[in-house]
Design a protein around this nucleic acid. Structure first.
Lengths: 358, 358
DNA sequence: ACCGGTTGCGCAAACGTTTGTTCATTCCGC
DNA sequence: GCGGAATGAACAAACGTTTGCGCAACCGGT
């Protein structure tokens, strides 16, 4: 009843367990006929190697750990999806844990995964990247190397810690440039999670963009947020209460932008008529927002794939390049040309998506 | 350099490895002083038990497998989140794999997980539930039982296969009842993934609701879909092209409903003025749709938690109840009273959310 | 026919735990 | 002070693999 083991096969084939093991791995020093016969028997028995036994001796689990902030965030889910695909392509499984956006839970999650002998660790949007420098646990028994860690959206900060991220600064600058080009001069920024690297970078890009376009920076145009739908109402209220409200706003991510759109619709603020809105990420929902969201696409799936691939490369001992992907402006209709005082009241700019425009 | 093992501790404490093992598990037959000393040493060494070695002998990996259709679906992500929380509370890890909505990939995913010695399997929205009856692999070495499988959104179809689901039929009936109460008589249904159980049930509930409210069923009011954002445009076009278009539409899920809202906005169809729209699930986004989506809430997180808990209960040998959770109507503003011929053209019903109404 | 090399396979150790059994000591009641 | 139970700890087997090494048989060349 219990699953067939290598010794069952050995008994049937009248050979030793080691021969079976080697035959199944296509070891060269097993004669072709034996190999074929053994593989036939294994097949017939529905043999599946016991990964724990294998892992115990090889010191590898063929499993990667992934710690995410929250699967429920579409952006995170998309990255995870990419990582899963890449891992699976290489016969690796994914063990995953959530931090619920809490630094304490994050390190706890990482430790649980490491305890479970993952061969490598992928951390998406860590809030405490520096902590990984000291996660001593889990050295590779063969090479003595510590287990590789890939930080998505963070810099590589230590030995065997790699990085896959996007050019947030450039992206945010592009976004601001686009809004400026539409005529906007008072452009606000709704920030993301405090302490997050992506947030710092996008803010930097925003400020650089403001400066590069000859617009004076105005502190009141940067409002706090957390990268969630819930940001929308409060951020909108804050901005519109300003003596001289902005005519355009760049959001930390699409989620916040969609929240903003929703709040605008409820309070009767026309988008993009009275306020142009841009997101960041281009999650699938962005195209279906009302109005469709102009945003800065991030190659999310590719990011996930790259993370898993970097991890696997490190395991193979291959060199691991630092990956930095570029975003791309996606023009839809939530951002439009600045309406001058006289020209107010025109209806929403509709128009089909004109994506592209690298 | 390599991680401390139980024999390292034994050597330091001058006792045998077995004593260390027992001391760490608080075995009663170890003297309190020894136990304390050993635990102190283990602590000092930063000892972490090797789960593979442990698993090899105990036959348990303290890991649950989860196969999902697509993490990118907010509903799925929410269930996953619940399951992760419950598993983690019990010291279990989650190994996860995606099927990309493809039956073939689904069984492949399930097999990989089983190969990795998961103690139990959770399958969210399986397209091929019957296949799990014959997944012979992975019997419990101790009890001889096959590994427990929990099907989320499917019926228990075999030994050691359990079920956690919601009352889709009742939910859909409630939704139709609500629309009828608003005065609608021609109510359409946008279906979900063909072959999915939830889809069949919701359709059944819809039809029952139609009948129960004395409305004649009209086949042309049921249009095909797949439960994705992309359904919106086509479904809307199909329905509005009807000689006698519906005044209200119930969607298979919120995603499709949001897609519909988006399409309506683009084509200038007023919601709920000309068309009332209802979703199903109440994903976080529903509240931020434009207009905010009236929907039938599904206790998503609870579903995930229940799935993990059922699985763990089965592992403990405890009885596993069949869980069927009830949904709840969430009234927002995408569905409104039927406007009579004469009364057309009024602006969108705004109003705050009036949630609740169990 | 002898020898070096190759080919094909088995032996046994090792991976780090858990756990049933045995063994030595202490403690109690008598 | 003796028998027997209770206590505390060690021994050793087992889990299912992988892999270094040894060993026999066979090959071809001289």
């Amino acid at each position: 009843m219990s699953p067939a083991s290598i010794v069952d096969i050995a008994r049937i084939a009248q050979v030793s367990p080691s021969t079976v093991s080697r035959a199944l791995q296509d070891h060269p020093r097993i004669s072709p006929e034996r190999r074929a016969e053994i593989q036939r028997i294994a097949e017939g028995l529905g043999y599946r190697p016991n990964q724990m036994a294998r892992g115990l001796v090889t010191g590898r689990s063929r499993t990667l750990g992934v710690v995410v902030t929250d699967v429920t965030d579409p952006y995170v889910a998309e990255v995870l999806k990419g990582a899963e695909a890449a891992a699976r392509d290489s016969g690796y499984g994914l063990l995953f844990a959530m931090s619920n956006r809490d630094p304490g839970q994050e390190v706890a999650a990482a430790e649980t995964l490491l305890d479970r002998d993952v061969d490598g660790l992928i951390v998406i949007s860590s809030r405490v990247p520096a902590r990984y420098r000291d996660l001593v646990r889990g050295a590779d028994r063969a090479t003595g190397d510590r287990t590789p860690i890939v930080l998505v959206n963070n810099e590589p900060i230590g030995p065997r810690i790699f990085s896959v991220r996007m050019d947030n600064i450039g992206g945010a600058r592009t976004a601001v440039g686009y809004l400026r080009q539409l005529g906007h001069e008072r452009i606000a920024f709704i920030a993301g999670p405090e302490g997050g690297r992506s947030n710092r970078e996008r803010l930097t890009g925003y400020l650089e963009g403001i400066a590069a376009n000859g617009l004076g920076s105005a502190p009141e145009l940067v409002v706090a947020g957390s990268g969630l739908l819930e940001d929308g109402p409060h951020a909108l209220a804050t901005l519109m209460a300003l003596p001289d409200p902005p005519t355009a706003v760049l959001c930390y991510n699409d989620l916040a932008a969609i929240g903003l759109l929703s709040a605008a619709a409820r309070t009767g603020i026309r988008v993009p008529g009275e306020l142009s809105v841009m997101g960041f990420d281009d999650i699938p929902l962005a195209a279906y927002a009302v109005p469709p969201l102009t945003t800065l696409m991030q190659p999310t799936g590719a990011l996930g794939r790259a993370a898993a691939e970097s991890c696997l490369a490190a395991l193979r001992g291959a060199p691991v390049p630092e990956v930095i992907l570029e975003g791309r402006l996606v023009v839809r209709s939530s951002a439009g040309p600045l309406e001058h005082e006289g020209a107010k009241g025109s209806k929403d700019a509709k128009g089909e998506d004109r994506e592209g425009m690298a």
